[in-house]
Design a protein around this nucleic acid. Sequence first.
DNA 1: AGCTACTCCTGGTAGC
DNA 2: TGCTACCAGGAGTAGC
Length: 284
Amino acid sequence: MPELPEVETVTRLIRPGVEAQPIRGVEVYWDRTVGELGSSAFEREVLGKRIVRAWRRAKYIVLDLEQSKRPAGSLLVHLRMTGRLHMVDARSEPGPYERLRLLLPRKRALSFVDVRKFGRFTYEADPARVLDRLGPEPLEEEFTPAWFRKALKGRQRALKPLLLDQSFLAGLGNIYVDESLFRAGLHPLRLAHKLTGKHADRLHEEIRRVLADAIEREGSSFDTFYRTPEGQPGSYQHQFQVYGRDGKPCRACGATLRKFIVGQRGTHVCLRCQRPPRSGAGLP
DNA sequence: AGCTACTCCTGGTAGC
DNA sequence: TGCTACCAGGAGTAGC
């Protein structure tokens, strides 16, 4: 499922195809993809505007729009589980899972494909309304060890659900949380406010390292869903230490990796490398 | 504040 | 072979 590294990869690869392009046509094949607005209002808001910038915030791909050289809202694309974005020939027939298409000049189109229909491609007149609710970007300057130490101290919550909370820190999902926690040697049920400063710093470092490495490898592809806009799989899945490896030996210590559920999410750990908190008695 | 349960979806797979 | 049941999960929401 696309998280920060996958969304960053997608954004980089579609950028040359969409920036500076006017939207000449809008085709919505699944109404709920555009959210509350509905497809006719969506089309009215978007048609004729120009995409001036494609960038990423958390797991959103943001397409800033202009009309008559003035800012005119943004498109927010969230891939959720199975969403894919790529450039297609505007004359091609829409595929079975295609949900939306923006028609651009020179017979090009930006296509949104999403098997499970969880993804969203919405228009926001004021995108800050959505984006300002998100926590800091883990790869930006603002995410400092000092900020992280303090933020963790202020939360009486287990690390796993906290790191998945986009209003706390933006862009991590199930895979990269499990990988970061393993690399930091921290059990997912450890409580944030009880971490030492040293542990907080270690986690900070591993989060950044994992995300940066995953971007370098164009994300992770382990099922048929995530592909780059060029149709290529990423390769970070080969670096997974714990995700999807339950029952297999830990690469660090050889202990059998375990999977359990935390907040309805499959959670992968090495119980020897990641000691459970005492408060979580009985739990892994 | 933070927890759980539920919702949205469908392809893939396990089990019979 | 063909059927059913269940699983994966990001984010929003409701209820406690």
